[in-house]
Design a protein around this nucleic acid. Structure first.
Lengths: 225, 225
DNA sequence: CATAAATAATAGTAATACTATCAAATGGTT
DNA sequence: AACCATTTGATAGTATTACTATTATTTATG
């Protein structure tokens, strides 16, 4: 996918655009694989360079550090989700339909092959699921925010906020509801695999999807201006 | 607080119990302060040792690494929340009352001094808010889980699950609802400070509390067995 | 074919994340 | 007060990480 669609990522999220060179594209592809495999904490530019038969110095020409690399993946992923949701909802006529379809896409398990185009998309999804929030929850958040790394995520939340307000203009907490659902869904999938006592999702059901779609429906119709 | 109440933390969450020596207690107190100040990523045992005029080697006698130190704080914090919620709800007669009171305690902002006993409690709360999820979201989660580090968190979720099922025995997603609320609330407070476009909480309202209490009420009464 | 740009190769530094050893201090028995 | 065990401090050392700098080589472009 990385190779096929060019997603807009703000220019401060990298030193040199990795989507415009062969090495850059390799960095993204193999970087996704490596993080998915060993996790963000154990991931280093040295390991990535070795994996693609390149050098640390070359990687550093594209990204300041691994934090920025994660920001890039984060930004790319949300740009991609924006695009995907746009494609799938463009033909729909009601905000309700659009919203439900979006929530379905945002909450579905990353092993649901349905609508996943390439193996790398599944791995990126799994990274964002497990590591994505680390791009946000840190002491540099304000500076990262200024770089634009969260723009695609915000755009998605804002688009969906509009749909919510179309349905119920008096609903007071649209952004809160949406981020609760998006990040909650990520967590539930992680819990399902590792901490089953903390969730009701299992491999035999699709509780996450059902729960959050039902959640958004009941919440929006709750009038609380 | 660390000094006043002894909270049960599983013994595999440390090498040597820091609650049983002067140096250990200092580690916890000053460690909380340091992480709150510089963040988990920048936090090192060297810096902590320097801060308390001790040595790196001494810190390593208590904890294997900073990941385990965070696990200790995580476990301690949830033990403490368990205790607090128990204290505040013991005299209540209905599950509904207990649940609402708990959600209030779990979702309130960490600058609400209300019911906070010491300055360190506020800082620990703020750490769990921002860094707590990092104790969970990593590749060692299964091993950490076996150490018992998440036990206090699970116990709280299970206690509250019982209350939910008391109110509505047919509700299918109690754990999912609870973890969604607990972790969602943490995120909303972080967003309120750093990414206001992603939340509806601000310093002028207490939207998080209101939203999640309303959320749990409407969800539980939704029949979806 | 010339030349600019990108990459590779190599080297080096400071900080991090530890482990090991031994000396000094402390605290509780007899 | 002397003894012993435990805890802590002091010091040293290693492998890895997180970078930066320099120069040589390859690759793309006009």
């Amino acid at each position: 996918m990385v190779l096929e669609v060019k997603i807009a990522v703000p220019e401060n999220v990298y030193l040199k655009d990795p989507q415009q060179s062969k090495l850059g594209l390799q960095l993204i592809q193999e970087g996704i694989e490596l993080i998915d495999e060993i996790g963000y904490e154990a991931f280093t530019f040295k390991k990535l360079a070795t994996k693609i038969n390149s050098t640390e110095a070359s990687v550093y020409r594209y990204f300041e550090n691994k934090q920025q690399f994660l920001q890039f993946l984060f930004s790319w992923y949300w740009g991609w989700m924006n695009y995907k949701i746009h494609m799938e909802t463009a033909s729909m006529s009601t905000a309700n339909e659009k919203l439900k379809r979006s929530i379905k896409l945002l909450t579905q398990s990353n092993d649901v092959v349905d609508s996943i185009t390439t193996p790398h998309e599944a791995k990126l999804k799994s990274i964002i699921n497990q590591e994505g929030i680390k791009a946000v929850l840190n002491k540099n958040v304000d500076q990262i925010n200024q770089s634009g790394a969260f723009e695609n995520y915000k755009l998605l939340v804002e688009k969906m906020t509009c749909w919510i307000l179309e349905i119920n203009p008096n609903f007071a907490y649209p952004q809160m509801l949406l981020t609760t659902i998006i990040e909650g869904a990520h967590l539930q999938h992680f819990f399902a695999t590792h901490l089953p006592r903390l969730t009701n999702q299992s491999s035999e059901n699709n509780a996450v999807e059902l729960f959050y779609i039902q959640l958004i429906c009941t919440q929006i119709t709750t009038n609380n201006g």
